[in-house]
């Protein structure tokens, strides 16, 4: 009995140590990824000033010119368009699901949205190629497109349809489930008593939502939007298949763009032969990691705080 107890205690202690160690190790994975990328990107970070890397528009690996600017702008434009499309639609849907949806509608819609969060990005890419690109192309060549063309950001110099707009639409649909599910959860978590307090003062449902519920849920809703943003920011396949991949700073919705993720994915095979090329690509990955990490971390901290303090 004594010895058995000692043995049991030992197993417990061992299990405790090993799980703790493993948890620490996996938790440090993000840091490890950052350090590894930093180490590999070091040659280019030390030989060039950061300002030149980030703001130079020339990307000519053969001549050792590595400017991320067009790619950064490509990523920002596509993600920006996606968020402009997705945020209003997602917030309205989330409010509907949390506040208005009858139980039966909710029971059907919620699982559908959850399941669609798992659709692989390649599928979004194919769909973009089959439907969105031709759609954008049709707009570009139509009467509407020609009249739009006079507005800034709407000039049509690229009739192919492979464009910022196509990438934005595909990405927007990709982040629907992400934003909707987090925002819906946050809105639902607003205390019922708060709603009742507002109703009891004679406020209508919508007024209660507008002045009380959304205001209370604002940090969480913002976190949902940020999570969606960082998901869109780091997306590779779906975007790469529809934005055209032309290294230029896009000037219009109908221009092609070349996001950072696509740059890495397209060029990684050929990097060995050229000095610094590989460092430049991993530098791009590092940049991506840092931005996404910052956004994610802030969003998660907000959500954690909400969960803890209600």
């Amino acid at each position: 009995m004594e010895r058995r107890l000692a043995f049991r205690r030992l197993t417990d202690r061992l299990a405790g140590c090993s799980t703790t160690a493993l948890s620490a190790a996996t938790s440090l994975l993000a840091v490890a990824i950052g350090l590894v990328l930093l180490a590999r990107a070091w040659p280019i970070l030390t030989t060039r000033p950061l300002g030149e890397l980030l703001l130079s528009t020339t990307w000519k690996p053969l001549q050792n010119a590595f400017g991320y600017y067009p790619f950064i702008m490509g990523t920002l434009c596509v993600t920006g368009v996606a968020m402009v499309i997705a945020v209003p639609i997602c917030l309205l849907t989330a409010v509907y699901l949390a506040e208005y949806a009858p139980r039966r509608v909710y029971a059907v819609v919620k699982p559908l949205i959850d399941v669609s969060a798992g659709i692989p990005s390649v599928i979004f890419g194919i769909w973009g190629v089959i439907m969105v690109v031709p759609f954008v192309q049709r707009i570009a060549s139509s009467e509407i497109g020609r009249s739009l063309s006079r507005l800034p950001f709407f000039q049509i110099d690229n009739p192919t349809g492979y464009s910022v707009l196509a990438g934005g639409i595909v990405l927007a649909i990709m982040v629907f489930p992400v934003i909707i599910s987090v925002a819906e959860e946050v809105i639902r978590a607003v205390p019922v008593g708060l709603r009742e307090a507002s109703w009891a003062l004679g406020a209508s449902r919508w007024e209660t939502i507008k002045y009380v519920v959304l205001r209370h849920a604002a940090p969480g809703v913002l976190a949902a939007v940020i999570l969606g943003f960082s998901r869109a920011f780091g997306e590779t396949m779906a975007v790469m298949m529809v934005v055209g991949n032309v290294p230029q700073v896009p000037r219009s919705l109908f221009d092609a763009a070349y996001p950072l993720t696509a740059l890495i994915a397209n060029s990684y095979g050929e990097m060995m032969s050229i000095p610094l090329y590989d460092a430049a690509l991993l530098g791009a990955a590092l940049l991506l990691l840092v931005v996404v990490l910052l956004f994610n971390l802030s969003a998660r901290l907000v959500l954690m705080r909400i969960a803890r303090y209600g």
Partner: peptide, 15 residues
């Protein structure tokens, strides 16, 4: 609800 006010069991200050 305007004519009939409510004081709940827990205070819910609006945000």
């Amino acid at each position: 609800r305007t004519r009939i006010g409510l004081l709940a069991s827990k205070p819910f200050p609006l945000p």
